[in-house]
Nucleic acid binder design. Structure first.
Lengths: 338, 338
DNA sequence: CGGCATTTTTACAACGTTGGAACAACGTTG
DNA sequence: CAACGTTGTTCCAACGTTGTAAAAATGCCG
């Protein structure tokens, strides 16, 4: 069996507490004893029992990361960064997958009691404001990306309206006149914000907002992008550009366009959102909004750390905007004839 | 604060143990009391303190998943499946990222004592056999994918030799004569197995194994695939087909080929390995070996569960092969002129 | 060398849970 | 009605750790 403090103490010939003191770096230990304890520690290969320690300390050493699906590149990349950021605070990360369903998001919120986790980072898709009422607000919670309005909860995200506006503006600057949008979804807050940016950019360019060019998507997978694009291509007058609300939709859209014999960017310019690794290598490579994912992860984790450290908080609910850039790639190269 | 058994007991007017009995489904509780306890449970919103429970039971309720990087699609997809499989055993999954470095793989193995986890699933890349000696073999360990030879540890993977042979055979069947390989890496066991399959298939087709067509890769990222492909295209006599040891390498290779003005599959046929979602939507879509990832995840988790359940085991070390298929897509379509 | 301050060590309790044993209540049986 | 088995409940201890407080050892001063 694994060695405990008791075993180490017996071997070193001191009390359990002295060993504990050495392990935790308490100052007043006779050098002689310190040496003996350290030897015993090494000899037994002692590892503290985290569970027992946390039980005693009233902390768990875990934070939860609740997201739709790890197999979606954006979330995989984000999770990787969150885990790395959490390590700096000596936290382990528990990942909970919700498939973007409200039920599972809600149950993740309630099931993970304060016994289990010290805090949670949540990337919700379907949660409504009232779901948060059920949540025991005993541990810090940070929302990333999606933002349930009217709920006083810390939030970290990019400026979605501005990002979308930037993306669409880029398309109109290239001279595209029929700019479609894929990803409308009234249940997603970010989708509404991106719609807003889309409309604003069209307005600035003096272009009309045409309902027929706005395609909804429930999920944001490649398949949905392809489907939406097929629909757009079946229109009497198809678009000459499309702004997709994430990279997967864009990849799917480019695929459908290719199947249809269209050339990207010549016949159709495409912009995505997220700057997943994939978008830099696709053929053609994908112009996309590049949020600073590392900043998102670090900010969210640090925010939880701060709330944990100062629990009886009077520092107000945070709504932090992290930076983004537009990565211009082949999918929006200028037409040679333009 | 969160409710404990004591609080619930006080409210219900029974002893702590009776509440515990109700919570754990112990049979002999007076209906009257059961009702009272259940009401109190609901009223307080009691959640068991997992740490304390595990401390008492000597189990942790966690398994570790040690892998190179969550942001790599294959591992993201695998992690998603492992988490789902683990849920069926009431396990939480702790994900540890190693970046594929030997140091971090080793430290993950030792740092996660038996206090922390009930078992571990390991997808190693750089570990040598001797590293396992350091590992306290107190908890079940399953290796997926890579297999450190000479170490008696459970292992789950596809038949890499056969898979590679199948992939290359597919290329030679299409009439390709100069079939390159990208991904040679003597430090990776699977790479050697895939090399073996590659050589075997060439042999069967009566083709020579040419050193110049075999390109090493340390990491298996898109960037490495592109780099390797650029090298191949600089040869006096470039290949007409390439077998990449994973999908990312293949995506990178296709990207480099496109940059070079080559048409895939006409000028160059490409086969990948892993069947990540991305490969179905790339342009052209990628022919690839499709391991049954779900089977890998389930088998690995179930194996751990079995070893945990029967610890004083005499059931021998397992080496389980999971099925795979070859998904033929556009990147290896037959030449129209052939 | 007694007294006192400082350093070092230890005993004890507690965190929340559950297994085991002990105990209590009950109905049944001889 | 005594003995018994069954059902239901409680008490105690323990899992491994650390905070508190008290005890012990040490060093210093007069």
């Amino acid at each position: 069996m694994a060695a405990t403090l008791k075993d180490v103490a017996a071997l070193a010939g001191v009390s359990v507490k002295t060993v504990s003191n050495v392990v935790n770096g308490y100052g007043f230990v006779k050098p002689e004893n310190r040496r003996k304890v350290e030897e015993a520690l090494a000899a037994t290969g002692y590892r503290p029992n985290i569970g027992a320690r946390n039980l005693r300390r009233g902390k768990t050493g875990f934070i939860a990361l609740v997201l739709p699906e790890l197999s979606i590149p954006y979330f995989g990349e984000l999770a990787a960064l969150v885990i790395t950021a959490a390590q700096r605070h000596n936290w382990n990360v528990l990942i909970e997958q919700t498939q973007g369903t409200r039920d599972r998001e809600r149950s993740a919120l309630t099931a993970m009691g304060p016994h289990m986790i010290d805090g949670a980072i949540l990337s919700p898709q379907a949660l409504a404001a009232e779901d948060f009422a059920a949540f025991h607000r005993e541990i810090p919670l940070v929302m990333v990306g999606e933002h349930a309005v009217d709920v006083p909860i810390d939030h970290v995200a990019i400026d979605n309206v501005l990002a979308a506006r930037t993306a669409v503006r880029h398309l109109t600057d290239l001279g595209r006149r029929r700019v479609a949008a894929i990803g409308r979804n009234p249940r997603r807050g970010t989708a509404s914000l991106r719609m807003e940016g889309y409309r604003a950019a069209l307005g600035e360019a003096g272009l009309p907002v045409l309902d027929e060019l706005i395609v909804p998507a429930t999920e944001y997978h490649r398949r949905d992008g392809a489907e939406a694009m097929r629909h757009l291509l079946s229109l009497p007058e198809p678009p000459d550009a499309v702004f997709c609300f994430n990279d997967l939709l864009a990849i799917g859209a480019m695929r459908a366009a290719a199947d249809h014999g269209l050339r990207v960017p010549h016949d159709l310019a495409v912009v995505g959102f997220d700057n997943t690794e994939e978008s830099a290598y696709s053929i053609p490579s994908l112009t996309t909004i590049a949020p600073d994912k590392s900043a998102i992860a670090t900010t969210a984790v640090d925010l939880i750390a701060r709330r944990v450290a100062e629990p009886a908080e009077d520092f107000p609910v945070q709504d932090i905007q992290t930076p983004f850039t537009l990565k211009v790639r082949e999918s929006t190269a200028a037409r040679p004839d333009a």
